[in-house]
Amino acid sequence: MNKEQTHSHPNYVKIYFILLGLFVVSIVGPLIGIKWVTLITAFGIALVKAVMVGAYFMHLNIEKRFIRYILYTALLFMILLFAGLAPDILKSEGNNWVNVSTVNTATIDQH
């Protein structure tokens, strides 16, 4: 019943060592001290690792396609939540308006 019986299963140990290699890169990256390198090595590699774990360990690569769409949908809704919240929390000034509450918060925070 498991599809792995028909597919030759991937070499899990090999994937594990690739993941470890990526893990080392994500640790070493921030030591260089350049901000964008840190961001790429930290989050880019986290993403790559997550995709690899998902694809090979969770067998999403051979799972029915709609499972992937379900998970993408859940992720998309979270991006939507982020996008909806972002202008509210990150932006406190516009052309003709100022979000007074955030300005007050900032001044309170300073002391």
Partner: peptide, 18 residues
């Protein structure tokens, strides 16, 4: 239905562009 939630907050001080 996931794209409409902030219409409950029009006067809550949310970003006017939203």
């Amino acid at each position: 239905s996931f794209f409409v939630w902030a219409h409950h907050q029009f006067i809550a001080g949310i970003d006017p562009r939203m």
